[in-house]
Design a protein around this nucleic acid. Structure first.
Lengths: 231, 231
DNA sequence: CGATATTTGTCCGTATGTATG
DNA sequence: ACATACATACGGACAAATATC
């Protein structure tokens, strides 16, 4: 008789009640057991629906205190971090890659500080360019720790970008991203075909394997670049 | 005797096997039933652990085909969309707000197009400034649809920012964010105390309630601004 | 191409753990 | 200390997708 009820149905119905203000911000909503009865589902199913809403920031849950509609929905947006190649190909454009330079060296203080390395640490410095339909899309300026990733000594990066090689060969546990606007340096301007001082969109990425730093990458885009995300 | 095993334990152990390359990219991992036996847990518990890893992008699952370690872990980062005020106060700085202008009008074509409105649509145009420790932090240039949110006619926004008022009073179901770098316009430069043409970090936000557009906001930050996110 | 077997997806009902008012 | 409400575990069942024969 009673048809099965999906946690999605329950989740969406509760989200609707919140959006339509039938459940007001700050208000206590019914307990799991009551909701389970109302929707004709098991408590575990209701729980799953509630968990998703909590994760989305629409409700706040506390043991014993119950579940409330969030007053200031701390919503979080997600954006994917794809390979540059995939990002470009998904736009229906052709992808090209150029290696600009590759040197083993020690790092400038700023780089060492951000990666938490000491003065003697050896790093590989790789500069490269990613193009979409033959025009510059992203200038990648990357430092790779040779202590953490000795294997990169044997990779010449002439055909495979550091981005792609690392994703393929080097697992990481933590990553940190910083995005900001900056004026193109002389070098960045030259590589990207811009005037020096033109606004550029910069993403910096640090990845680590447990405590050990793997790499610091500075990814510079021309001002036409858009970073888009939903919800 | 057999103690209960948490899905977190199982999840973390499997994540470790992937990070340590005991399970290689592209490889098929054991089925849920086998894992349940190995970890001494119920299949539902293993399933929850696997779901979380799949959501994090470490594995890819398909019915009948089984579960594989992702070749190109499409990891997604999350960033929170807080109120500007909270964002500033969390940095230990004092928050100030200034209303710059507030007009009821029709919108320029670009705005109408992005919000999907017709020519006769009435909008409220609000310009305001958010300051951190008395220096300009964000210039907010916002259009609000009066069809969707007639209540804003009665709000003067002299002490409460549109950002805050909308979050508090107007629920939304969808939001879209776009981030990019741009050169400061004459107006933006004047408001933020910059030279015209200085690189600025721009976030554009569109929110909707189901199909109806609520608002389009252009949020302009000085070049010192950093948007940071983890994992 | 169609039937089938396999694997994940999700639900149920129950039981117990845990944080907290 | 206690009751309450959420958190999560178990085992069983069926549904849905799909690789393979």
């Amino acid at each position: 008789m009673s048809e099965r009820v999906s946690f999605r149905t329950i989740r969406d119905e509760m989200a609707r009640r919140i959006a339509e203000r039938r459940w007001l911000p700050g208000a206590l909503i019914p307990g799991e057991e009551a909701l389970a009865r109302e929707f004709g589902a098991a408590r575990a199913t209701v729980n799953r629906a509630l968990q998703e809403l909590a994760r989305a920031g629409l409700i706040e849950r506390r043991r014993r205190a119950g579940t409330r509609v969030a007053r200031h929905p701390v919503r979080e947006a997600r954006f994917v971090i794809p390979l540059v190649r995939q990002e470009i190909e998904r736009q229906g454009k052709s992808y090209q890659y150029q290696l600009l330079s590759r040197h083993e060296t020690t790092a400038p203080d700023i780089v060492r500080a951000r990666l938490g390395l000491d003065e003697k640490a050896r790093l590989l410095h790789v500069r490269s360019l990613h193009l979409a339909d033959r025009s510059p899309y992203q200038f990648e300026d990357r430092w790779i720790s040779l202590d953490t990733v000795p294997a990169v000594r044997d990779v010449d990066f002439s055909t495979v970008s550091p981005n792609e090689w690392l994703v393929e060969h080097e697992p990481f546990t933590d990553a940190e991203f910083t995005f900001f606007a900056a004026a193109a340096s002389a070098e960045e301007a030259a590589v990207l075909g811009l005037q020096e001082g033109t606004p550029v969109f910069v993403g910096e990425r640090i990845t680590r394997l447990r405590n050990k730093s793997i790499t610091l990458a500075r990814l510079v885009h021309p001002p036409s670049h858009r970073m888009v995300t939903q919800l």
